[in-house]
Design a protein around this nucleic acid. Structure first.
Lengths: 183, 183
DNA sequence: TCCGGTGAGTCTGATGAATGAACCTGCTTT
DNA sequence: AAAGCAGGTTCATTCATCAGACTCACCGGA
């Protein structure tokens, strides 16, 4: 973490986790990765983060084993950032923190709702499906906008792709190069 | 958050949560509050945080409704910092993040273990008691050191009090003024 | 009344990160 | 040839953090 090595005195696994994922933008990057964001520019425009910081965070998350780089084209080499196994296991803490934020830090309630893809039931506070009675892994979760929220309309490709229901971890549409149609 | 107001563009409840609890030391302060730390100086020595930063964080957490100030003496007015209802609900995300850190960011495994006070069973990955089959609220959790860990011996009062089993939320022993007995 | 101690801070200068804008590279399309 | 795009790097400025000294109100003892 940016704390240098200050946390290393802490006895706690939480301090270790925060060294990996506790920096300013890190958890939001991981959240976007769950949403299906894979490319540098998509993270950039969706988060509004300075490029240099994004570079640093992505490299740190790769070094920590949360993300990995995967080439998606070779002509000019380009790669996306995907969640590793360890990264995928951040879903539960991330979801719980998000729920907490929706209850206690968001005046008008959450802007997104999460449901179990298989049965359409909204997840409970622990990230489980009340109907199926078990925890739902991120790949089986569908995120959709909360209809009760007006919200400022954002126009970056990621926000547009998330304007409708979307299954977590599936690459967002902006990944399509879209050769000559309504660019 | 220290990001100024940058996160406010984000659609997500997670961003809201991170504005409250995502700053550099905030979650460690909340963790210590679960451990039973209540006093300024105990946070200070246990975390090794600069005083000015601790002041800022405590005030921010109080303003956000995560902690509240409670006087424990009036002669010279002194107060401790206690978790509010909203703060108590951070237990689940905090525990999950800590577990994640123990699995993926701590080389020798976690330094603390958590058990259900009523039956002595260790909590599972979701913070539930496998025997009782339900989520265990923090007030019913006992933390104890992981015997498998040597670890550097720390000598601040909070670390000493946590050297043995301790029920979460119970004030740590350092709260005793101890007038003239084996200071 | 003077003296030292304690709890909970505030103030200050030095250091280090975050920010935003501009620039660079390799390749493709017009 | 010129422009565009993806994914960066470099730079000056601003902001947060750090460590340590200082403050303030009160207590308890001589």
């Amino acid at each position: 973490m940016a704390l240098g090595t200050d946390y290393e005195l802490q006895d706690c696994a939480l301090a270790r986790a925060l060294e990996v994922v506790g920096e300013r933008w890190s958890l939001l990057i991981v959240r976007d990765a769950f949403y299906g964001v894979q490319r540098f520019n998509d993270f950039l425009t969706h988060l509004g983060i300075p490029r240099a910081v994004l570079t640093a965070r992505l490299n740190a998350l790769v070094a920590a084993g949360v993300l990995r780089k995967e080439p998606y084209q070779y002509a000019p080499l380009r790669h996306g950032y995907l969640l590793t196994e360890a990264g995928l296991e951040l879903w539960a803490p991330l979801y719980l923190l998000s729920r907490w934020g929706g209850r206690h830090a968001t005046p008008d309630g959450p802007r997104h709702l999460f449901a179990h893809a298989a049965c359409g039931t909204d997840l409970d506070r622990a990230g489980a499906c009340p109907r199926c009675g078990r925890f739902v892994p991120p790949g089986e979760v569908v995120i959709r906008p909360n209809p009760g929220r007006g919200g400022a309309p954002r126009t970056d490709p990621v926000s547009l792709a998330l304007a409708g229901p979307h299954r977590l971890l599936e690459p967002l549409a902006s990944a399509a190069p879209s050769t000559s149609h309504s660019a």
